[in-house]
Design a binder for these strands. Sequence first.
DNA 1: TATTTGCTATATAATTGATATAACAAATAG
DNA 2: CTATTTGTTATATCAATTATATAGCAAATA
Lengths: 142, 142
Amino acid sequence: MLIFIEPESEKPIYQQIRDQIVEGIARGELLPGTGLPSIRQLAADFGINLHTVNKAYELLERQGFLQVRRKTGAVVQPSGRLAEDWEARLSTLLAEALAQGLPAEEIVGRCQRVLAALTDRERPSGSCAQQAGERGEKPDKP
Amino acid sequence: MLIFIEPESEKPIYQQIRDQIVEGIARGELLPGTGLPSIRQLAADFGINLHTVNKAYELLERQGFLQVRRKTGAVVQPSGRLAEDWEARLSTLLAEALAQGLPAEEIVGRCQRVLAALTDRERPSGSCAQQAGERGEKPDKP
DNA sequence: TATTTGCTATATAATTGATATAACAAATAG
DNA sequence: CTATTTGTTATATCAATTATATAGCAAATA
């Protein structure tokens, strides 16, 4: 499971981390019970601040994707509960396509394709987090 | 076509305006060629600043939903072009449902229901913008 | 010509995103 | 038990974003 950070993106870093972990769970690369790297570890790998990763984990816990414990770290544990505003967000997104003239069937087709791409098993999980910056940072901490 | 502003929402006001206009277009309440209220008019109706409405209109124009002219004001004119990152955003949203254990067919069903709700004609458009604040503000401008 | 309108330019204040230190508390490893 | 790792909390700083407040300019219209 690789995570790529784009520091120049308009999407906040903590949101990028959240989204990619959610996708990892959806893909089945992060199964329930899987342990995630520690906050400090991820922050070091990405070369970003501890609090940025913490914010992502905190968000994922509040939204019911993880459970965070003391020494154990974050563990994948979906609650089975969809966010209350999920359908509202879906409506906004689908409306965007309708407004641009895409037929409803075409939109449904795209949803099915995206879902198929996510549920398409074939992918043996590698289970490591990876830096996305183009410059090779020296791994300190001797 | 009514627009409701929730000043306390975590979603920025200009984004609320954008989303609701996009939904209005999707619903067919705002047909191509329809003129929208002037920036100053909408701002006065909502009791918000001119620039906030301007930002929403500017965004809608950049994303290909409106064309804005001098004295004519904003006119609904979808470009037919979906945003490049639309599928990526869809993937993130659908992944959220998959990660919480919803079966793919259930998700597709929800997409179809949301689309049906949007394309369900029945709704004669009223064509006016409306304040959402619960307190009746005095309409100044003497 | 006078008004309306979009547009631009500042300026200010509150909030958010990200970083930087520092310290505390709980769980684990030795 | 001791030392380390880990999540957590508390500050502080800086930049960008969100929203507001004025002000003025230019184009289109009546």
